[in-house]
Amino acid sequence: MSAAADTTTAPGAAGESDFLQVNNLRMYFPVTEGILIQRKVAEVKAVDGISFTMHKGETLGLVGESGCGKTTTGRCILQLEKITSGEILYDGQNVAKLNKSALSEYRQKVQVIFQDPFSSLNPRMKIGEILAEPMRVHGIIPDARKRDERVMELLNICGLSTRFADRYPHEMSGGQRQRVGIARALSVNPEFIVCDEAVSALDVSIQAQVINLLEDLRDEFGLTYLFISHDLSVVRHICHRVAVMYLGNMVELATCDELFDNPIHPYTRALLDAVPIPDPTVESAREHKIVTGEIPSPMNPPPGCVFHPRCELAVDSCKQAVPEFREVKPNHWVACTEV
């Protein structure tokens, strides 16, 4: 999708100073063949030209189904991938062009909380060591004893008993480990946290605890979250603005209330319609229009609008022309010509 390449029109909250700016980001992964001599046979277009901005203190939700590129977008911002084209500006600086010391500083300001609390903690390290390591690496608290004090403080902030400092990850439940993941992200006093499906692996009663914790921390430390999730109910609860992605493209971006009350893009509507509501009376009264078909492969995305093979509004022109990501209402951006 030819999303606004011009930086001055990148979709964001008008009038706010832009903290993070993503301009026309593309991330293509090569598909190779051969063992010794590898040659590129195809490309997976994980992210195909998306633009958005975020301001300080804001929580932006990034939603979509598997393979839509939401996690890749997060990894690009974290500088865990070398982007194919486009630029990511953090506080006005192009993060791809940072030198070694500036990059180290960037990695301290920008942290991540991963989805899987079982594989994102080193099983051979004690919780105390896991939390102290980032502080040691970044030289935030050089004194070992003071670091231990800070570890205790972090455990407290995240609602864990200080006894956990001497335990190993396998001694903890999923919810407790996710709290450790959050404490580790906080240990270096970040400004910006990418929460990649941070509550998706947790049971509902534990999930609510962790959501509340993330909200409290945001308010207390003025954190900015990029909240990546496939769970629309959770996104609606925690986010200020929401962006919907489909097959590497951004199809809709609006404030949370606007997006959930007045969804415009046919894919957003289908997605909202597919979420079951825990109330039998409400459910039986809802009319379900179930979107047919499957998500196409990002190696060979459909021409034109990527959603057209599944879209009930699709007309012939959708098969050829890529719809422009346009502002249909103030701060409400949609990539669809038929609405």
Partner: peptide
């Protein structure tokens, strides 16, 4: 407690979730 701890699409936003404290 289970019913109260899930955010719902059809309810007003902004309310704090009411989680079940503790662990199973």
């Amino acid at each position: 407690a289970l019913l109260k701890s899930v955010p719902r699409l059809d309810q007003p936003r902004g309310a704090k979730l009411d989680p079940v404290e503790g662990q199973p």
